[in-house]
Amino acid sequence: MGTLFEPFTDVVPSFFGWLNQGPLTLTIFLHTVIILPMFWIYFQEKKKLNK
């Protein structure tokens, strides 16, 4: 499992490069920030429907 957590290898450091630290860290982070607000939209809609 030693190779599971790869060291940062990108040539030029950048914000996205910094998030890209190991297995899928960057993409999981981006997916999460896209999905999370949908919960908020869901509960808001639920409130509206229940009225």
Partner: peptide, 12 residues
């Protein structure tokens, strides 16, 4: 609810 999907689509 169409409104839920429309808002989610716009956000995403």
């Amino acid at each position: 609810s169409i409104s839920f999907w429309r808002r989610s689509a716009a956000w995403v």
